[in-house]
Design a protein around this nucleic acid. Structure first.
Ligand SMILES: Cc1cn([C@H]2C[C@H](O)[C@@H](COP(=O)(O)OP(=O)(O)OP(=O)(O)O)O2)c(=O)[nH]c1=O
Ligand SMILES: [Mg+2]
Length: 659
DNA sequence: GGGACCATTAATG
DNA sequence: TTCCACATTAATGGTCCC
């Protein structure tokens, strides 16, 4: 489930109140919790800490972002709005046309999974408040503990304050994977192709079972939960709906040991989501919720549809599609795709230090673990990413891509050390390593995913809904993004030719490459330090930015008068540039209008940068969003239409040897 | 203009 | 007594090099 976040913000005699809904989001097992008290305790325990300060930093960043969007919104003229309303309406119609109510999806979610498993192996824990994790962080808590406000992703020492009786149990992934496997055996009987979303969650397409056995959805769901219980002794909750996005929302409704069914009926769906808080949707987290609420007054999914024009105007096309889809209650219904893992990583936290010998020791350990893990899956990677968390909780990543892929702990360590060296001296509290850019070892499984998509975009009403759905599935079902379709643990042994492929290229252009990357890493480390507010940008860069801003501003301000709303003179000629486009060229006209608007906004925006040092990033920027609309169609997403068949569930097996 | 890389943010469990 | 994990994916946007 979504985790809760803390956030600071002061002012007011009761500072904890402005403490953004810390661990108090309405969640299963949280009824009757004294939220105010929880909030206060968490605040008291947090304030003044390094962690807290970092949270404040992040909060400030977010506020900036919101202000940014507010400004953008304010810039929209009535003409713009009506234009984008038309764009939005069209998109709504297109998306609506992809609605598929023929499938029945079920989402299962085990109740307090880790905690429940621990209780199984130690029944004396039953009925007593317990959390799985450590004093510094707990993974989850049972429902008894939740009554005190104790929740997943809450530091243990805070949980202790909330619930002095709290019992801590260390995590034991072996156990969880074991029980997870048991549940999956049950799932398999209802949908052999079910998607495993995590150890404790899965999506099943139960359309066929219902049909074949001629029983109702309710019966199937009831039976499945019963069978899971019989097989494991664990309870779970389920949600059923015509698509995965909604099914997931539904499984949370009667959370502990319950189920909720949403009929495959458009009216029912619309009613269901109309009052649904957007935060309930997978993919909409704390930040997005805030932006939508503070900038557009959007709280429910219904609001989402009302404000659709803003999305088309200010967000990237993929984001706009996602929001509109949610507003329509659409979600993934297509058959699960087989996805292979994209990265493998490990990281460790320790008490902050500057001891470089210690760092090195950590790198050795991490390299060895990572290497071993990769070997288990027969992977070789080309990109190594070093992750650091400073004593002040700032996170940095430094990556390096090599000519040939590697896996040996020696190689990993060698490059990792180099990356780290460039960052010294620093005081760190965490070091991590990640490998990506996998080569799929030997066994034929092709490597490069040169995904093709485009096709999906061209024709909306096209032949199959699956393709179209697939297209949106990226965005839409963000929560399913790490699902793996299940395959029996019957895979073949590993490779033998592995070592070949890396040796060959070995020494060649390596030096060159590495040097370049090295520079790059150092350079950006100064630059990005990401100091929107307090941090000052590197002088040189700052100047450059400013200069650009001014130059843009001049041209911008002079022409911004001219570039008001676009009108089609005599219904075919552009009032701004004179280009001629007959009324029937709807798409082209829209793109043309977008072009002018983008042009205008870009200038305005850039001139705004001259005043404040605004962050230049974030997907919520309209400049690209608008431009993207015309040409960006192909650029956005694309997903998993790449058909590689590399069944793995390895992700989960890996988790097992991770403490 | 597009591709390869890199860094950061957001989100999920 | 100490004072906030770890694994994974995706989107976005910047830089550099054709
Ligand atoms: C949310 C979260 C979960 N987990 C682990 C522990 C959880 O038992 C497991 C499944 O997550 P959840 O399904 O989110 O939580 P849960 O199963 O413990 O409780 P419930 O579903 O009844 O609300 O994932 C983490 O390790 N870190 C996290 O931040
Ligand atoms: Mg669960």
């Amino acid at each position: 489930m979504a985790k809760s976040e803390e956030t600071s913000s002061s002012s007011s005699s009761r500072p904890w109140e402005s403490y953004h809904t810390v661990y108090t989001n309405a969640k299963a097992g949280m009824d009757g919790v004294d939220k105010e008290k929880v909030q206060r305790v968490v605040y008291e325990m947090s304030k003044g800490s390094k962690y807290f300060e970092n949270e404040e930093r992040k909060e400030a960043y977010m506020k900036q972002k919101i202000e940014n969007m507010r400004a953008q919104r304010a810039k929209l003229k009535p003409a713009d709005i009506s234009h984008y309303q038309r764009v939005a309406d069209k998109r709504i119609a297109e998306l609506e046309a992809t609605r598929d109510l023929t499938r029945t999806w079920l989402h299962v979610d085990m109740d307090a999974f880790y905690a429940a498993v621990e209780t199984l192996s130690n029944p004396s824990l039953k009925g007593r408040p317990m959390a799985v994790g450590t004093m510094s962080m707990i993974s989850t808590a049972n429902y008894e503990a939740r009554k005190f406000g104790v929740r997943a992703a809450m530091p243990g020492f805070i949980a202790c304050k909330l619930c002095p009786e709290l019992i801590f149990v260390p995590t034991d992934f072996k156990k969880y994977t074991y029980y997870s496997d048991l549940t999956r055996k049950v799932f398999q009987e209802y949908d052999p192709n079910f998607m495993a979303a995590s150890l404790d969650e899965a999506y099943l397409d139960i359309t066929n079972v219902c049909k074949e056995r001629d029983i109702t959805v309710a019966e199937v769901t009831e039976e499945l939960r019963q069978n899971v219980y019989k097989a494991t002794g664990l309870t779970c909750s389920a949600g059923v709906a015509p698509n995965r996005l909604l099914a997931k929302v539904c499984s949370d409704i009667n959370k502990p040991n319950g189920q909720f069914l949403l009929p495959n009926d458009r009216a029912a769906i619309m009613t269901f989501i109309s009052s649904l808080p957007i935060r309930k949707i997978g993919g909409i987290g704390k930040v997005t919720e805030h932006i939508l609420k503070d900038v557009f007054e959007i709280k429910t999914c219904e609001d989402l549809l009302q404000k659709s024009s803003f999305f088309c105007a200010l967000f990237s096309p993929s984001s706009a599609d996602f929001f509109i889809s949610v507003g329509l209650g659409l979600g993934g219904t297509d058959a699960p795709q087989v996805r292979s893992r994209k990265s493998m990583s490990n990281e460790r936290t320790f008490s902050a230090t500057k001891d470089e010998t210690f760092f090195h020791q950590k790198l050795v350990e991490l390299s060895e673990m990572l290497s071993a893990d990769m070997e288990k899956e027969g992977l070789h990677g080309r990109t190594l990413t070093l992750k650091l968390k400073t004593a002040s909780f700032e996170v940095k990543t430094r990556a390096l891509t090599l000519q040939s892929s590697l896996r040996s702990s020696k190689d990993i360590l060698k490059h990792a050390s180099k990356l780290l060296k460039a960052e010294l001296p620093v005081s760190l509290r965490l070091i991590g390593l990640r490998m990506s850019h996998f080569n799929e070892d030997k066994d034929g499984t092709l490597s490069d995913p040169t995904q093709r998509t485009l096709l999906n975009y061209i024709k909306p009403g096209d032949d199959n809904t699956n393709l179209v759905d697939d297209e949106h599935s990226d965005v839409k079902d963000h929560s399913e993004s790490h699902c793996y379709t299940y395959t029996n643990p019957s895979r073949d042994p590993l490779s033998e030719l592995n070592d070949n492929n890396e040796q060959v290229v070995e020494d060649n252009g390596l030096e060159d490459h590495e040097c370049k990357d090295q520079l790059n890493a150092v350079k950006s480390s100064e630059f990005d330090a990401q100091g929107i507010e307090t941090h000052s940008l590197e002088g040189r860069n700052q100047d450059q930015l400013t200069m650009i801003d001014f130059s843009e501003k001049e041209t911008g301000s002079s022409s911004s008068h001219d570039k008001e709303a676009l009108i089609w003179l005599e219904d075919y000629k552009c009032s701004l540039c004179g280009v001629e486009l007959p009324p029937s060229f709807l798409e082209e006209r829209q793109e043309h209008a977008d072009f002018h608007l983008a042009e205008k906004m870009q200038m305005e925006e850039e001139s705004a940068h001259a005043y404040r040092n605004l962050p230049l990033k974030n997907r919520m920027r309209q400049k690209e969003a608008v431009v993207g609309q015309s040409k960006g169609r192909k650029k956005l997403k694309q997903s998993p239409s790449n058909g590689k068949h590399i069944p793995i569930d390895a992700f989960f097996s890996k988790a097992s040897h991770n403490l």
